[in-house]
């Protein structure tokens, strides 16, 4: 009950850049992140219920796209149309698992922009911790991944893929992958909310990016292409997650993993700061 507290801190809105008082800013960021957890949960439940209540087949739709993609690619591979080389685990399981990881990454990138776009009317009128929108998206992304995991578990059982204790570490690598995606998404959000070009460009950038990531093929070892794939920061994170979960924990590029992780986590903090500081300007300019 707010009225009992008579000595609540004074809130001051000034034109000054928030970055001029970094300590205050960091304190506010922490406070809002903490304060937004319940709202984020509520928004996530709202969005997921809305999504599933209007659908007859519900969760089924989460299964269909990866199955179709994996089946198609498996056919292409078996018929030698697509020559991806040897994978350490049977190709259908490989491609299904990798696609699930890739889709999670894609959702992490597009999540913040979509969240801000759909919440425009709310953002334009109510001042609430905007971190909640992003947290809610990340929650939904975990939910979607969990559903796909059922399918992947089934495939792993079917192909009798050996699993080691390192699978327990896989979620850590997955978190780093999501952190990288969210970082990119958050950095694009301010411009993306103002200019529609961003979300349009993003669609095909993500399509092209897929081909520079070892998702439907194993990591190439030589050539210019191999170099490009190696420089792609998604590669070490995605590959490491896969290796920890399904390939006996033999990490091929630990150094790359740690560098990419550092980029992801450092970048996430920076992008959060950018998101937070710029949202008032975005709200001012965007149509409600």
């Amino acid at each position: 009950m707010p009225r009992q507290e008579h000595h609540r801190p004074e809130i001051i809105h000034t034109p000054e850049s928030l970055l001029r008082h970094p300590l205050q800013l960091f304190r506010d960021m922490g406070r809002d992140l903490f304060a937004s957890r319940e709202l984020a949960w509520r928004l996530m439940v709202r969005d997921l219920s809305t999504q599933y209540r209007q659908s007859l087949l519900g969760i089924f739709w989460a299964f269909v796209p990866p199955i179709v993609t994996a089946t198609g690619l498996t056919f292409a591979s078996n018929a030698n149309i697509l020559n991806v080389g040897e994978t350490t685990i049977p190709y259908p399981a490989y491609v299904m698992f990798s696609m699930a990881l890739w889709q999670t990454f894609t959702e992490a990138v597009t999540g913040p922009i979509q969240a801000v776009a759909t919440a425009k009317p709310m953002l334009a009128k109510i001042n609430f911790p905007r971190e909640a929108l992003v947290l809610s998206r990340i929650g939904q992304l975990f939910f979607n991944f969990a559903i796909k995991l059922i399918l992947i578990a089934g495939l792993f059982l079917w192909f009798q893929i050996p699993i080691t204790w390192t699978i327990l570490l896989a979620p850590v690598a997955l978190l780093h992958l999501i952190a990288l995606g969210t970082c990119i998404g958050l950095l694009l959000t301010p411009i993306g909310a103002l200019y529609e070009d961003v979300s349009r460009a993003l669609t095909f950038v993500m399509g092209a990016w897929l081909f520079f990531t070892p998702v439907i093929y194993p990591p190439p070892q030589e050539g210019v292409f191999a170099l490009l794939v190696r420089l792609n920061p998604v590669t070490p994170l995605l590959v490491t997650t896969r290796e920890l979960a399904a390939q006996g924990g033999q990490i091929s590029d630990p150094q790359g993993f740690w560098i990419a992780s550092a980029i992801a986590i450092g970048g996430l903090l920076v992008s959060w700061l950018v998101y937070r500081v710029t949202m008032p300007f975005v709200i001012e300019r965007m149509s409600s």
Partner: peptide, 10 residues
């Protein structure tokens, strides 16, 4: 607090 002022304070 939705948008920032250009001058003054609240």
């Amino acid at each position: 607090g939705l948008i920032k002022p250009d001058r003054g304070c609240v």
